[in-house]
Structures are given as structure tokens and as C-alpha cells.
Design a binder for these strands. Structure first.
Lengths: 349, 349
DNA sequence: GCCTCGTTTGTTAGCGCTAACAATGTAGCT
DNA sequence: AGCTACATTGTTAGCGCTAACAAACGAGGC
């Protein structure tokens, strides 16, 4: 792969071999018009013969474009963030960008800032922050001037473009589904307060209950983990008036199913349980879980589009115009109810 | 953040403000000795006042180091790859490297090559390929000369450093555990043939059976998905002689549990089931799943160490020495059996 | 005083590339 | 032929940084 002398070949080497100037090589590489087909072929042959690769640093230095986007994410082992990251990466590559990632271990205003600074150090052209927590979003509003930025699942933030799944709508749909089955009301196992997704799901659930004139029980707080769902499930099992539970994610729903099962409660005959996320396993829980499907790859695609738009606009107009768009850019991806066997019409318990 | 004239500040701007030469600024930034403390302070102040960030492209151009590592991965929504990626990213950052990722949609020799070429285009200093399939590993052996490379879960490949979990040992441990409970033999639901992890688990299972002189049934092939586990589980349910099943991953094990449950088979009283992976949900399956835990963050850490070692060695000796180490570098991370309630002593069925 | 040595700072060149401009060739017209 | 228009190629400068060398300065020994 490398040239004879040991160092990897540069444009001048290719030029020499093809008998042209280095600039002609550059033109071929960048697809400029006005290069004679024969010359182009000769250059191509030389490139292949030497195994030449353009030096991206040199290119970036002069074009002032690194073609790198940064992604800040939190706990990629959770199904949602992992799927979103995957969608982002694919979309970025299609748009001609590389993706550099930073995963946070703790979420604080400081650590998000630090991650963004770190990515800035690498001269990324823009960042996507998968920031489902309130703290993370707040930390973004201060920085937003610096360089293009998009928040995923970011909540409402002035002047900060956001892509998110319609948590409220999804939660409303599940709750309405359960009410439609004849349940007097629906209990809710919520996610942590700081998580915007958790709050959106609480809101949708509450709205549906209010609209139906159903009593609104206090939501129980878990931490997304199956364990917390299990613990809350044990408490739910003790209250015989509960007939329907909407759990804020599938992992906790699994814990709830387990706890209710251990208590000898039959699902869905005695208690209906629904989740949120539609993880691949949900269909094979005992019983198969009614849940809400989110189109994460669409989220990834849309957030890249928003980010690339910002970058292009800035590149075209020059970075002078600071606060050109104060409009509240917010791209909401719909969620879809998936009904399975864990929910059923109300029966006596 | 940006300087007054609109363009972001460069080293010369800092130098002017601090009343020194740009080289002195460079020295401060790189922590060179022989800079008077007072000068250093003045430069620091100027840097902060201007919000100066070093241009990484210019720096990379002259130092010939991009400080970027590439990671090629496949389906990051699977628990294993996602956890490994996370561990890699953390370890890389600690070692002072950025991480650029490419996720593959299909695994073929061509697509892995393409991903590596793509990363080469970005001038990464080395790559880690999370390549659990045979095809992926094969595609690596040809390239290995080009630049530092480490395979994760890569199987045996000449001259290619590999970090992997001890699949064989883990599988042997589960199988021995089941035999120790008095089962005459253990059936196996395997993963796809092309996956090296699947083969390793088959091997460990087979070894344990052979050592115990137990009959070796034909392994049944799934595709890692809960659905395939479910379908195979339905078949298993029909054979009353089966009392113990080792499933190659937790997702398929979930499907098996579901299928056996639907067939009215009690677990673990009638059939013991064990998985592999120890996903967070496993503890809350019905019943809680006996499985094998893998230390993925350790895998990430070790693979980064192997890669950084290669890069450092190459940087020190110059890239002249091509095939300096033909030794078979292979770092095996132990796996750990986690016994839960899905396995029990054999009983009459 | 002069020379040597070490510390601190400045000057210069050049990494590999692209953009702007200059130069050349080639065809089509008057 | 001579001019214009255009296609094709080459030459030059410079992106922002670091490495190598050079210069200035003070301390210490003869």
C-alpha cells in the first residue's frame, strides 16, 4: 500500500507518476470538469497503483471543513439511545459526514459541556446531543451560539432545534386503549423525573385520563431498570383495585409482569399491563407486551437533516449572521401503539 | 467565542494579544518546558480571552497524528456490541483518542473492507472491528498490513490481534452446571453458523458433554432473535425426553421460555433453561434466567490497549518494519456463570 | 574581559492540500 | 492571418500549526 520509500504517497507522487501537475490530480479527485478523459484515466491509474489516499487533515485545513459530526450520547446499552445512534450514523454517512461519538457516564450540565468542548477540540462541524434529561438540555442553551447543534429528545428549548418522538401522543394512545377496554382508570409507573421522555409519558397519560373523566392516581417512579419495575410491581400487587397499569418503558414493564406473576395475579385477565419502546423482546414476554413503537431510525435521519441544514446555511451565508433563526424548530416523530396479549377487557378481580 | 473580525481566532491572534510569538503560544499549549511562568500566564489569559481552540487539522497535518481511532461495528442494538462499543469509547478517550464509528448493515467481506477504506479516508490511526462473523474476520487478514487493527470476538487469525470473551469456557461452565444438576444430557439452541461466538458456545457445550460421557444431541440453529428461540422452543416442547436446554443467548432463551410456558411445561421443575449474555432483563424473566455474564467493558479496554500499543510501536520504530510481530496476539476475557431460578435438579417429567 | 553554557524567545521552513490566477493549446469566427 | 472563446493544464500562495534552528540574554568559570 505504501510507496517505495516507506512514507505513504502524497499527491505529488501521483502527479509525477501520471506525468501531470499535482493540481490536476486534485481536480480529478474532486471531480472537477475540464479534465481530459485520457488524463483522468492516467491519474486514476497512478492513484490505484500507489494506493494513494488523500490526506484529510491537509484537505480540512484549506477547505475549513472536517466533514466530521459529533454525537454526544448517554448509556448506549439502552435500546432507545442505541437505536437512535445507529440511525444517526447511517444518515450521516449518507450525507457525507463522519461521526465521532462521546458517551457520557454521568449527566450533568458540566459533563455535557465537557463533551461538547472535547468534540470542538476535534473541529467537528456540528453536534447532535441525545439528551433526554432536563439537565442536559439546559446545558445546551448556553452553548448554542458556538456551532450547529441539534438535540434529540430535547424538550422545548428556545432557538435550539429538536427532534423527538411524540411521547405525549404515544402515552395518550396507550391510556386510551386501556380505558377503551373498560378499565375505570389506569395506573402509571413513570421514569425518573429528570427525564423528559418520562415527563412526556406522564403528561400523555394524564391528559387521556382527564379527557375521560377518570380518576388520576399518583404515578409511581422507577428508574427505567427491570429491577425498579419489579419493586413497584410488588406494591401494585397489593392493591386489588388496580386493573390496568401503563409502564413507562418495556424493561420496567418486564419487572412489573414478573412481580404480578409472582403474586399469583393473572395477566391480562386480572390486570392489564402496557409498556413503551417496543424492544425486540417485548413480543416474547409472558404474556406478549402491548407497547408503543418508536421510529428511531427516522429520528436519526431527521436530526442529521436538521444539523446538515444548519451547517449548509452557515457555510453559505458566512458565520457572520449570528441569530438568524430564532424560530422554534421542533421535529416530532409519531409513535405507534402495538397491541399484544398483555392488555384485555376488564374483568372482576 | 469567535474573535471580533468574525473568523475564529488562530494562534497568531493569541500571540499578538499576549505580546509573544506564535511559537511561544504553541509551546504553552504543548506543555513544553522552558517557558517563563509569567509568559505562560499571559498566554493562558489571552487564550481564554479569545476563546481560542487549536486547529486540529493543522496540528494533525504537521504531527502526522490525527488522534482518531475507527470502530467498525454491526447492529449496535444488540446488547453485546453496544456494550463493547461503549467500553471502547471510554477507554479510547482515556488514552487520548477520538472515536469515529461506522455501523454495518450487512456483513460481507466487501462491506467490512469498504468501512475500513472509509475510515482510512478520514486518516484514522488504527481501527477496531467488532467482527463476530467468520466473513468479517476473513476480510481483515488481507488488510492487516495497512494500519494498526484489532478484532473483537474475531476468532483465530494469523498475525491479527484479537480480544474476545471466553465463549468456550462460558458454555462449558453452563453445561457442566446443568449436568451437575443431574440432567442426563443438555440440548443446545445455537446461534447462526457464521457467528464465531455461536461456534465457540457450541464447542464448549460439546466439550462438556463429551467429558461427562453424555449423549450429544444435534444443536438447533436460531438467529439470535427471540422469535427464532420461540419457534425452536415449540419443537423442544414436543420432546418429553428433554430436561435441560442451553440457549446461546438470552434473547432466544426468552423465546424458548415463552414457548415452553405456552406448552404448559413448568420451568425449572420440568425443564431447565440457561442463556448466555446476562442482559439486564435476564434477572426478571419468568423465571429469572441462569446465564453467563461477559465483561464487555473489559473487552473494550483491552482492545484499545492492544491497538494503542500497535500505534505506539509503529510511531517509535517508524513504519519501515512491516511484519515485526507475527506472534498470535490473543487476549481472552473470562466469562462468568450466573445461576438463577431457571435451572434446577432434574425431576420426573 | 572573554568564553562557555543553559534558559528563554523568535524566525523560518514546510506538512499536503485547494483556490486563484496564469499560461497554453485548440477551435471557430471574421 | 488574426482575433476571440473556451477547454485544459501549470504555477503560486497560503491554510494554521510544529520542528529545527538561530538569537538574545544572564550566570558562572577562567
Amino acid at each position: 500500500m505504501s510507496s517505495e520509500n516507506g512514507r505513504s504517497p502524497v499527491m505529488a507522487d501521483v502527479a509525477r507518476l501520471a506525468g501531470v501537475s499535482h493540481q490536476t490530480v486534485s481536480r480529478v479527485l474532486n471531480g472537477h470538469p475540464n479534465v481530459r478523459p485520457e488524463t483522468q484515466a492516467r491519474v486514476q491509474a497512478a492513484i490505484e497503483q500507489l494506493g494513494y489516499h488523500r490526506n484529510s487533515s491537509a484537505r480540512a485545513l484549506v477547505t475549513r471543513r472536517t466533514n466530521v459530526l459529533g454525537v454526544v450520547t448517554f448509556d448506549t446499552t439502552l435500546y432507545g439511545p442505541a437505536s437512535t445512534l445507529s440511525g444517526i450514523e447511517r444518515a450521516a454517512r449518507e450525507a457525507g459526514y463522519f461521526v465521532s461519538i462521546v458517551t457520557l457516564t454521568d449527566i450533568s450540565r458540566a459533563s455535557v459541556r465537557e463533551a461538547l468542548d472535547y468534540l470542538a477540540e476535534q473541529s467537528v462541524e456540528g453536534c447532535i446531543v441525545i439528551a433526554p434529561q432536563r439537565a442536559a438540555v439546559e446545558s445546551l442553551t448556553d452553548v448554542s451560539v458556538a456551532r450547529p447543534l441539534v438535540a434529540v429528545e430535547g424538550g422545548r428549548a428556545p432557538g435550539l432545534p429538536v427532534v423527538c418522538v411524540d411521547q405525549v401522543g404515544g402515552a395518550r394512545a396507550v391510556t386510551e386503549h386501556l380505558l377503551g377496554l373498560g378499565h375505570r382508570t389506569v395506573h402509571h409507573v413513570a421514569g425518573p423525573m429528570e427525564w423528559l421522555e418520562a415527563e412526556g409519558r406522564v403528561q400523555g397519560w394524564r391528559e387521556a385520563l382527564e379527557a375521560a373523566g377518570a380518576p388520576i392516581p399518583e404515578p409511581l417512579r422507577g428508574d427505567w431498570s427491570p429491577r425498579s419495575g419489579y419493586e413497584i410491581g410488588l406494591r401494585l400487587a397489593e392493591d386489588p383495585r388496580i386493573t390496568a397499569v401503563f409502564v413507562a418503558n418495556d424493561q420496567m414493564a418486564l419487572g412489573v409482569l414478573r412481580a404480578l406473576g409472582e403474586a399469583g395475579i393473572r395477566i391480562p385477565e386480572e390486570v392489564s399491563v402496557a409498556g413503551f419502546d417496543d424492544v425486540p423482546e417485548a413480543e416474547f414476554f409472558t404474556p406478549p407486551l402491548t407497547t408503543v413503537w418508536q421510529n428511531f431510525s427516522d429520528v436519526g435521519r431527521r436530526s442529521i437533516r436538521l444539523l446538515v441544514d444548519q451547517i449548509d446555511r452557515r457555510a453559505r451565508k458566512g458565520s457572520a449572521g449570528a441569530t438568524e433563526t430564532e424560530e422554534d424548530l421542533r421535529d416530532v416523530v409519531p409513535a405507534r401503539l402495538v397491541v399484544r396479549a398483555s392488555t384485555a377487557p376488564v374483568q372482576l378481580r
